[in-house]
Design a protein around this nucleic acid. Sequence first.
DNA 1: TCCCAGGCCTTGC
DNA 2: GCAAGGCATGGG
Length: 276
Amino acid sequence: MVTINNNNFSIAQIWDSGQCFRMKPIGENTYELIASGRYLKMKEIRQEAKIETICFCTEDEFETFWKHYFDLENDYRKYIEGIDKNDKYLLEAAAYGSGIHILRQDLWEMIISFIISQQNNIRRIRNIIQLLSERYGKKCIAEDNTVYYTFPEPEVLSEVSEEELRNCNLGYRSKYIVKTAKSIVEKEVDLEKIGKMNYIEARKELMKLYGVGGKVADCICLFALHHLEAFPIDTHIKQVLDTNYKQGFPFEKYKGYEGVIQQYIFYFHYSSMGKK
DNA sequence: TCCCAGGCCTTGC
DNA sequence: GCAAGGCATGGG
C-alpha cells in the first residue's frame, strides 16, 4: 500500500474528466484502473483542502510504474499559477479541476479508444471498450481475486472481421479499427517510431491511420505520448471557445502545456452539462 | 420525433 | 483546398 500526498492529484477528477476509459468507481471514493495489463485499486481521502490517495499496490510497483503513469513527478501547481489573472473563466475552470493530471497511457490503447470516441459519448465509449476487452483481451485475476480483462492486442483485432466487431456496438467505426489494427501489425505505421517523435511529427504520422483525424491524433498525442502542447478541439472545447473566447484563445500564454489547460476547460464544461 | 455525443471519410465543386 | 452529406447507436 502506498499513500500519495498531493493536493493537485485527484483520482476522482481524473476519472470524471474522461481521459481514461478503463477507470471506474467501485465504491465510495474508490476506483479501479486497468492499464498496460495491470490492475490497481485506489481510494481518495479528502480532509478539507487536503487530498490523500491510497494505492493498493506494492511500493516497488508504484515506483516503477504507477508514479510515472500518473505523472506524479510533475508539479501541476505551476500550470495553474501560470494562468492569466484576468481570465476569470480559465481561473475558475482550473480551480475546479486542480486535481487533474495528464496520464501516460498506452499508445495502442489510446489510438483505438479515441477512434471509438468520435461522435460518441463517454459512458458509451467506456461500455464499448469494456466489451472489446472482455471479448478480445486476456482474462486476468488480481491479487485480491478481482477478475479483469486487458485491452486487446493489435494482432487480435487485426484478425477480427468488421462484421463481428460491430457486435461491440462500434457502428461505422468498426472498419476504422480493423484497418488501423492491420496497418499497425504490418508496421505501415510504426508505433515504436512514433514514440520517439516530437508532437508535430507524431500527429502527422498518426493521421495516416484510417479513422484518425486531427482531433483524435491530438488526444493520442496528449494522453499517450504526453505531448502537453497538444490541444484537442472537440465539440465541448469548441463551444467554450465560441462563447468565452470570441477574440481567439490565447494559446501563446500557455506554450508547452496547452493540453493541461485544455483538460481544465474540458472537465469544467463537461461537468456543467450534467454528464450525459 | 429530433438532436447530439471528445469526428472522420468521401464526394463534388 | 473546402463545404456538405453520410455514418451506427443510444439517451435526453
